[in-house]
Amino acid sequence: MENKVGYALWVLQEPVQYICLLAMASMYAIKIYTLMKKPGPPEKAELKGDRFAGAIHSLLNVLRPWGMESTSKNPYFYLEFLVFHIAVVLTIGSTFFIPLFPTLMTPVVTKVIMLFMGLAFLIGLRRIYRRFTAPEIRIISSPDDYFAIILMTTFFGVGFVTMSLWLEGKPETGWMWIFFLMTTFFLLYVPFSKISHYVLYPFNRVIFGQIFGGRGVLNRNKTDIKWLPR
């Protein structure tokens, strides 16, 4: 596929995106630096397990729905989570592929991305409904929570329509403009919103893994207990 667009859309798709991307990266760098400056979890106790293995185990927790009761008892919820986040990656990816590597956006690739966008849109609608109606979710929700899920869901919807037009050989459409304007907004907004949780995820999971891996709670071999006292 070719990305034959006018100068104005090109400016939005490339220089503007790069500037916003740089701004986002800078914000994240500050965030990460601020966290790293704080004291990490000490461990002077004699370990019963492996802190490093625990950290890896914990980081990969996202791929083990059976690892937590909250996901093992809600497999459908986990599946939604998985599809939604794959869609996020593909949608963000497409904003780079379209201007930079349009040839990668073959009809098959585009259709796969559209499939995830469509599913994520439906999942987003369900999540919006849940946030508005489930008492246990409503009570913990702030405007940012509603805004973030509505924004993401809209993004997927717009992305789906944009991709279908792209598939028809229409790279410059009003929908494409909206899609990239939203992307621009995302890049600037995300570091300040709850959507930036993916930057915090490794921190929390690694700390969790270090603590509970070292204590022998994670990764333990029930049949080969490392006894203390030895």
């Binding site: 966290l35 909250s70 929570d145 700390i207």
Partner: peptide, 26 residues
């Protein structure tokens, strides 16, 4: 009181509500 673990935990909640079935109080 803001160690890395505490600060990351304070900043890291996404209000997904998955904890609601995990607490003996709730």
């Amino acid at each position: 009181k803001l160690s890395r673990a505490v600060a990351a935990s304070l900043a890291g909640c996404i209000h997904c509500g998955m904890c609601s079935d995990a607490c003996h109080y709730s």
